[in-house]
Design a protein around this nucleic acid. Structure first.
Lengths: 262, 262
DNA sequence: AAGTGGTCTAGACCACCCC
DNA sequence: GGGTGGTCTAGACCACTTT
């Protein structure tokens, strides 16, 4: 006989709770209690069909519940696995402090190296374009054209973040900012050299399910939301000099802020 | 004939892309382009079965894709509807500033009133308990027992946030903090009166799919993630005096932080 | 070749909502 | 009562992974 009865119970077809929910409940509890550990393969659909005496669609339905919760993921031809918790990248609110800018390398690379991960940046694209609505609202409606700097960040080969910086064209055109490599300290260092001493950042944070495009770009498993962060940088004249739009795989990030209790 | 051809196309069963994904793509695009507006009912399963010439499960499968993306929600016996954008509550990083504490009412009530919404707080529970691991880590491992203050926040009848404050028992026991109504300015005002002048807050932000319990408590639609915020308050002695664990319906919130570019 | 999940069909019965 | 979504069955064929 199957060894499943040891880890899973039975279902009650007469219960008010749908059978596929009962199965999902049992699998969820087994995972929570560690009876299936991270990365471990769950019983196959066929095994569960046999164990519970239900049709295959019922079993698949219960898997889809767990996938929606981000608890498991399916691999075609291999099985359904307990989703391992991802290595988490911690983003501190002082990550743009001037003192971190003095070194040559970007915050992302330095940080990841320190954490023992292998960081990469790809899909670098720098181009002029028309400011979208969200960008124009934040840079000021007089800004029609912007320089957009897009890049994707990867950790140990896994895409974790996709970011686009938008800068008013009158500030960025024909400067080092418009080049793929903006040089040591990144674009913030260049902005300050251009006379735009940075004064403060506004950050807006939302969370939502990803669009199909985001699922592709970040290779997101089902049941993984994204954190959408929009940062606006202001210089000491109060002018918005950059809007950075960042979409992060939520299972890879913790954002940390330190606030004074003024 | 059905009037659907005007808003929806046809599918290609020989395509590599699964039929239910093609249908989901078309519905998504129609929604994005406003051919179905917020709150509007999508064609019924039966209509789509007829229009596309596929089985009902295929249509349902495409609906479930869109539900997972948080784009639509189904109402039993009524239909499938385009999810309206929720009224959004903006949480500013200075919401705990001392100047906001002088008034009598809680930040939540004042803010919501100002925004023209009807705020409520319920499920108020105040009790002593053993500090959980996450709480003990932040309050300091010497803190074994805590006072827990739980409450749920609603906006216009919709639950949007569930929060629990944990305070070291030696600070909170037998004070106004241990009462359901902690009085004007809330527990932070009481903490300061007790000699714990607040110095700073640490906030950690994560996003993930909700647990079944959170789905119930916040009456979350499928495809809506939660924002999980853990705030630790420190007094001027550097002691952690409160940990507040907050779970928010992600579609109801934007978190806003203002950071100095030091 | 065997086992796995991915897609799809064609039905069935039920529970809920609205007229 | 008629329309809607919710659940479930019992098959079928396919694509992918592993042996």
């Amino acid at each position: 006989m199957s060894s499943l009865p040891g880890r899973l119970g039975t279902v009650d077809p007469t219960s008010d709770r749908a059978v596929f929910r009962q199965i999902a409940d049992q699998l969820r509890e087994a995972i929570d209690r560690g009876r299936f550990s991270e990365g471990e393969k769950l019983p196959s659909e066929a095994e569960l069909v046999e164990h519970y005496g239900v049709s295959r669609m019922t079993v698949r339905n219960s898997f889809s519940v767990l996938q929606g919760e981000g608890l498991v993921h399916a691999e075609h031809g291999r099985g359904v696995f307990v989703r391992p918790r991802q290595p988490v990248r911690r983003l501190a609110s002082d990550r743009f402090a001037r003192r971190h800018r003095e070194q040559g390398k970007s915050a992302f690379l330095v940080e990841a190296d320190a954490a023992g991960s292998h960081p990469e940046v790809d899909s670098l694209e720098v181009k002029e374009e028309k400011a979208g609505r969200d960008v124009a609202v934040r840079l000021g409606s007089s800004v029609r054209r912007v320089l957009a700097r897009r890049r994707r960040y990867l950790l140990d080969g896994r895409p974790v973040e996709f970011a686009t910086s938008y800068l008013p064209i009158d500030i960025a055109r024909a400067t080092r900012i418009a080049e793929p490599d903006p040089g040591p300290g990144g674009i913030y260092a260049r902005l300050e050299e251009l006379g735009h001493r940075l004064d403060r950042f506004d950050e807006e944070i939302r969370a939502r399910m990803p669009s199909p495009a985001e699922v592709r770009t970040l290779r997101l498993a089902s049941g993984v939301p994204v954190i959408h962060l929009i940062r606006t940088a202001y210089d000491t004249d109060g002018r918005a000099v950059e809007v950075c739009d960042t979409v992060m795989a939520a299972d890879a990030y913790v954002l940390a802020y330190q606030l004074p209790a003024t």
